[in-house]
């Protein structure tokens, strides 16, 4: 099957899923959520004020019309204004994406690099005390809550020892990256490296038992060359896909880091929206992240095919 036909088919298949997400979000916020007018009007609202708010929000329309309005909002990428700050939703996401990426891209790169190195190391010494003790250490490390890492790290490293600023953000991305993002990235790595090491270790061990590795060894290649060139190149296929698949989750997964370190990113904005019952923002974020997830999954499949020609797409 050629590439364009594959792409068209996959994009076509996304439509029912996306419609499902739209329906899920709509049911949650326009039906389960009840009447938002009471939320917005405050404690002492007359019937006239409530009716006014309902009219402004469009919640006085029948449900099917509200659904059409919502779909129209999605197609035009115009989700209106935030209920809490009256800032246009589109602008909120545009301005919050930069800080999120400044935090997440270095974190993702470092995590992958560290995890692959450690996984190669433990795979090279598989079954030895090094392998076993590193696996136990990683199980313990990933059992400690990210909350504990952040609270202790912020207190000890930033507050007591003064190595980093406790929290904050500036207008220059280079300054942010070298000053403000360092501690959050470090804390994020504490919990994210260990699960990746465990996963990548199994990927590498899967490859180590293959025939081509025995052949390479029989040809008299050094163990490091076998591991770094032959095994790693093949194990890279699931690793790269795994990294790519984790991207959309990262975007929201870093909300704790963004909240603690006062980084004006998307994750922090979502938490604020949940606290303020800012429904339009949560709706837009959910739809946006769902689209991003579906697209990265597709990209992951394409990359898989490109890296491993044996894989057939169907």
């Amino acid at each position: 099957m050629n590439l364009s036909a594959f792409l068209i088919r996959r994009l076509w298949q996304m439509i029912p899923t996306l419609l499902g997400v739209v329906l899920l979000v709509f049911v949650l916020f326009n039906w389960v959520g009840g009447d938002p007018a009471y939320l917005l009007a405050g404690k002492m609202a007359g019937p006239q004020a409530l009716a006014n708010i309902r009219h402004q929000l469009g919640t006085d329309l029948p449900l099917w019309q509200q659904l059409l309005v919502f779909i129209q909002q999605i197609l035009t990428l115009d989700f209106g204004n935030s209920w809490a700050t009256q800032e246009p939703i589109a602008q909120i996401f545009r301005t919050r994406l930069g800080p999120s990426l400044t935090l997440l891209i270095p974190m993702m790169l470092l995590e992958t690099l560290l995890a692959v190195c450690i996984a190669l190391l433990v795979a090279a010494f598989r079954g030895s005390w090094l392998d076993r003790s590193l696996m136990v250490v990683s199980t313990v490390l990933m059992s400690i809550s990210l909350l504990v890492y952040i609270i202790v790290g912020q207190y000890v490293l930033a507050f007591l020892w003064g190595w980093f600023p406790v929290k904050g953000w500036s207008d220059h991305w280079a300054h942010n990256l070298t000053t403000y993002a360092v501690l959050p990235i470090l804390m994020g790595l504490m919990v994210s490296v260990a699960p990746s090491v465990r996963l990548y270790r199994t990927f590498i061990l899967d490859e180590i038992n293959q025939d081509y590795v025995r052949t390479a060894r029989a040809r008299g290649l050094s163990e490091s060359r076998v591991l770094l060139v032959h095994v790693l190149r093949n194990a890279a296929i699931p690793i790269v896909t795994n990294v790519l698949m984790g991207l959309p989750g990262l975007l929201t997964g870093a909300f704790l880091l963004e909240r603690f370190f006062a980084i004006p990113g998307i994750g922090r904005e979502i938490i604020l929206a949940v606290e303020r019952s800012d429904f339009p923002l949560i709706k837009a974020a959910t739809i946006g992240v769902a689209v991003a997830t579906l697209l990265t999954n597709l990209l992951g499949d394409l990359l898989y095919r490109w890296l491993d020609p044996r894989v057939h797409l169907d």
Binding site: P16, T17, L18, G20, V21, L24, V25, L28, F29, V32, G33, P248, G249, L251, T252, G253, F255, I270, I271, A273, V274, S277, F279, I282, A285, T286, V289, A290, T293, L294
Partner: peptide, 24 residues
């Protein structure tokens, strides 16, 4: 499978947050 696809398209914690925001 459609239901599965819909629920996995939204990251888990974001979905939980959305429901928590709605339920009050």
């Amino acid at each position: 499978n459609w239901l599965y696809g819909v629920l996995t398209a939204v990251p888990y914690l974001l979905l939980v947050f959305a429901i928590a925001a709605v339920l009050h």
